[in-house]
Design a protein around this nucleic acid. Sequence first.
DNA 1: CACCGGGCGAAAATATCTTTCGGAGCGTGA
DNA 2: TCACGCTCCGAAAGATATTTTCGCCCGGTG
Lengths: 306, 306
Amino acid sequence: MSNDLKESFAHEAPPAPAALAAKVRTLAPSMTRSMQRVAEAVAGDPAGCAALTVTGLAELTGTSEATVVRTARLLGYPGYRDLRLALAGLAAQQQSGRAPAVTADIAVDDPIADVVAKLAYDEQQTLADTAAGLDTAQLGAAVTALANAHRVELYGMAASGLVAQDLAQKLLRIGHIAYAHSDPHLAVTNAVTLRPGDVAVSITHSGTTGDVIEPLRVAFEHGATTVAITGRPDSPVSQYADHVLTTSTARESELRPAAMSSRTSQLLVVDCLFVGVAQRTYETAAPALSASYEALAHRHRAAPRK
Amino acid sequence: MSNDLKESFAHEAPPAPAALAAKVRTLAPSMTRSMQRVAEAVAGDPAGCAALTVTGLAELTGTSEATVVRTARLLGYPGYRDLRLALAGLAAQQQSGRAPAVTADIAVDDPIADVVAKLAYDEQQTLADTAAGLDTAQLGAAVTALANAHRVELYGMAASGLVAQDLAQKLLRIGHIAYAHSDPHLAVTNAVTLRPGDVAVSITHSGTTGDVIEPLRVAFEHGATTVAITGRPDSPVSQYADHVLTTSTARESELRPAAMSSRTSQLLVVDCLFVGVAQRTYETAAPALSASYEALAHRHRAAPRK
DNA sequence: CACCGGGCGAAAATATCTTTCGGAGCGTGA
DNA sequence: TCACGCTCCGAAAGATATTTTCGCCCGGTG
């Protein structure tokens, strides 16, 4: 009961979240000298003050705990504790506000933390670009072909070869026959054996890698369904591709070779293919997935619970 | 003095500001039941929890104050008070930030366009989490070791094996001696030949893959510098690692195996290592890079003029 | 010069957080 | 199955931080 009175009196309903600096300015004139000192410190360095206890802030401003609490009250908070929380929030907002300042190229003398931030940002950008630029019709067609394929052969060299292997591994896990080839000779001889109903996939960022174009051509001519994953949809590789999936091309720099972002982009495409196939063949894919988990269980040491 | 030991063990240097959800996921498996309850509440409703005292949160989660504090510690904060501040910051960020995008799991009947969007978003999230959770001190140390290494050997199985190969390929391109191994037997026999000045890197998401722990142990015992890239910093693999680089753990679902996001995360770490090494050895790395470009030129067909 | 009133801080009172300690539950090996 | 040892967990003591109380001090005033 006595609470009712108390609450109705504290009509400063919403404690300001971010509009704190403004509130300080508004209320400053009505503050006493000591309180102004506190308010000033708070407005000037929210992050720093958030790290301080009442006592700490009192000392910093050369005042007392009581004054700090009074100031917090004046600013509309129930006490210092809540002001401090608001301060932490404000600091976090400011922090995140100036985040996207890392678009610059990576320089030789960048500190390691910047490298991490820039790389992460660039790769995020690459993912967004790829997703935006992906032709879902082509993707759907490719998924259909893969899902119904009797056999899938993947061709890719160097970094793209790893992407090919990644897809092969995943398709194998859900019971599809899929192999990746990095040896140009074997790739071609392998392509010769393909027939209608089989699928060949070539992965090349430039679209001009002869070593993966050849097997795709052979596969194409033997009647297999062919898919190209490339950053250049108008490149030679597309000639022999029934379905072309376009990866994005990010600007590269000396310290960030194109292989990096093209790989990210290719992997996203490959993941989409995989999930698409898994969806279409869910009946067999799901049990195959869990079976492969169990089969590997004994190769893992007991996990530490603590 | 006795403190030194204690602190050096708690090498989780920076209390996470916004990467809290990621940290919860990373550490959740190593948590006890009660602590998981707390972590869950915290990750689920940062704003709500920020308004609660230790006692309040303990009651909400049906646990005790002690457990709440323990959880806060595990997450890298000195105590609950600091976790609470971080929570307030997180809440403020979420408030100001845009709405949470398509966070839903991928369903069997999702149209292909949704699959693309969800995968892209999830991978972006993974990148952000990884970047936020990466310990730059450990990363820097690992880079230094790699840059000065006489020889680098990489161990990884299945998907992680591809990541290992990716790094090996890139290091080779800038003139470093680096090889990736996927054959457990060869890996161990190879590790035996390592000596001080050499570097061994094991990549395993679970941290429990015996096949890559063994070679790392052997390398460690032979005096080589060892690095572990894992999603579980407290797992067995870390035992033999001079430097532990933590990758993020995303929630997985049936159609989105953990391998997908862990691979993304691992690749970011590996890219950071590569760029770091390239920076440190720029004098030799730069010419090596352009030389390898030229060497491959003749394997590309004429690019289409338009 | 005595008085008054509000601003202010020291210190008590309270709330909150941290640590300690021992009991309960659980897996392990005999 | 039972005893053992282990870790997990919460109650309560102990330490900090916050809020409140109380009265001094200072400047203005009659």
